[in-house]
């Protein structure tokens, strides 16, 4: 289980949601939020690929954030 804290000033919330949807085949996700962060707890379904799944998930959120023009 890994907790990722995506700052709201950098990452778009919809990007986090969409990435969670896309990656739900590869990991269990729990979402919560604070005033400053989108908090995602990631539990990869395949332990051997955990590093890759978490890392690529993070990249995916960043990619979708940039696709959406970023946080204005």
């Amino acid at each position: 289980m890994t907790e990722l804290r995506f700052p709201r000033e950098v990452y778009v919330g919809e990007a986090v949601d969409e990435a969670v949807k896309t990656w739900s085949r590869f990991a269990e996700f729990e979402l919560s939020e604070t005033d400053d962060h989108w908090v995602v707890t990631v539990t990869p379904k395949h332990e051997a690929a955990a590093r890759q799944i978490i890392g690529e998930f993070g990249n995916f959120v960043l990619g979708l954030t940039i696709d959406r023009g970023g946080v204005s």
Binding site: R5, F6, P7, E9, V10, G58, L62, G63, I66, G70
Partner: peptide, 28 residues
């Protein structure tokens, strides 16, 4: 600007896992 940080970070997502956070106000 954040757009420049986005742009530079995007260049690396094929080779690296990239994460951006705000350690303190005024910094990425």
């Amino acid at each position: 600007p954040l757009q420049a940080v986005y742009g530079a970070s995007y260049i690396f997502i094929d080779r690296c896992y990239v994460f951006i956070d705000r350690p303190e106000p005024g910094k990425y």
